[in-house]
Simulated scan of single mutants.
Amino acid sequence: MPGASGAAASTASATPAARSAAPGAAARAGLPVPPRSSAPGASAAVEPVPGSTTAAADGPAADGVPVPGATGTAPPALTEPGGTPARPDALPSPGTPPAQAASPHPAEDARRELRGLARAAVRLDGPALDALLGDFVSRHGLVAAWEEVMVPALHAVGRKWESSGDRYVEVEHLLSWHVSTALRRALPAGGAPVPAAAAGAPPVLLACVPAEQHTLPLEALAAGLAARGLPVRMLGAAVPPEALDAAVRRTGPAAVVLWSQARSTASHALARHVAGTAFGVRGARTRPLVALAGPGWAGRAPGPGLARPNSLHEALALLTALYP
């Protein structure tokens, strides 16, 4: 889809009908929804990354924009991609600020929120979008808001764009901007408490691969990491290889997350290079973990030093484990 800077989500769900929608505007906008794993407690080496686990059938339209899941039952926000209860390390810690604490039953709220978001987006009502997104984040937490509301709403608008002859571009742009704003506003004033293990620790480096413009999933991951008090550096869209290499050597990161929305942008050679980059003092040199994020990396098993998280929950658990 033209334009939408930092848009985020695609539609690869478990149902053929949902898969058939993947080439639409939502996919072009960078909205990854990974397929669900069939195994309980699926590991990080499955499919791409921060995205949604919601894959219900589209329900009644709101002002012409279909609302995903409006006629079905959305999966609980605190589950792994296979529908099994979330691992303890995927749940908020006791010290998580109220704005990040998640409700165990946000499905009904999510469906109401989707209808409201669709109507507000079609009306180009920015203040309403801010209020709706902010309220859901404050009540159910950042991860639930991303997986149960933000990605499905962007997908719904993308589906409408695809079926309406390139109309609603302005709707998708506006919604993407306000989702990005809500992610940045999700953090508590003054920042989150920093865990002892993260004090002075190397950061997680987030970057889109060269020629990749879709940053919104990385923004969700950055917000989730910062909410846990973990150090993060966001390099943004289309980072040149030389700049990425320089950033890795200068920051000595614990992990590097590389986002690729399409196979045409995924550079496995670049990922291997980053995974093999050593830094530190002689005799104690180390290398970063490289997380391959996004549907562009699908089709190959991760090699040594590489991981492929399957959801926002998994990405946060994978990276949080680096700060024991």
Results as ranks from 00 to 15, higher is better:
P34C: 02
H214W: 07
A55F: 00
E212V: 09
S37P: 14
P23G: 00
P240K: 07
R139F: 07
D58H: 05
S20W: 00
G69Q: 06
A192G: 09
L78G: 08
G24M: 00
P231H: 13
E172R: 11
P23A: 04
A293Q: 12
V171F: 02
L218G: 06
V290T: 09
Q261V: 15
P324C: 11
A156S: 10
F136H: 08
P304Y: 08
P32E: 05
S13L: 08
A262H: 07
G6P: 07
A243N: 12
A222I: 01
L244P: 13
P40R: 14
D135E: 11
P231E: 11
P152R: 00
H173G: 12
P2W: 03
A223T: 09
V46M: 06
T277G: 09
G51F: 00
V65M: 05
A62M: 05
R249L: 15
S13D: 09
G229F: 13
T181P: 00
E108F: 04
G116I: 03
A222E: 14
L142G: 07
V122K: 12
L117E: 01
V65C: 14
A237G: 14
E80P: 08
L142N: 02
Q261A: 15
A197G: 02
L142Q: 10
A29G: 15
P188G: 13
S260P: 07
L292C: 04
G224A: 15
R115E: 14
A266I: 08
P76G: 13
Q213M: 03
A7I: 05
P81G: 10
A121W: 02
P50G: 02
G191I: 00
A246W: 05
V248S: 07
G69F: 06
G59A: 03
Y168D: 05
S38Q: 12
A57V: 10
A17F: 03
P32V: 14
W177Q: 12
A156E: 01
A55P: 00
C208M: 12
P202I: 05
V204F: 03
S163H: 05
A131H: 13
P85D: 03
A196G: 08
T53N: 13
R233A: 11
A99P: 09
L292Q: 02
V151Q: 07
G24P: 10
D245N: 14
L78Y: 03
R123T: 00
P240M: 11
Y323A: 06
P106Y: 03
A26W: 00
T79D: 10
L225C: 08
G224H: 03
A26H: 13
L133Q: 09
T53R: 11
P76V: 10
L221A: 07
G126V: 14
P253E: 06
A275T: 12
V157L: 02
A315R: 01
L124Q: 11
G24R: 01
A192P: 06
W161Y: 02
L319E: 04
H214D: 06
H173R: 15
T215A: 02
A223L: 08
S38P: 13
V281L: 15
S13I: 04
L258Q: 06
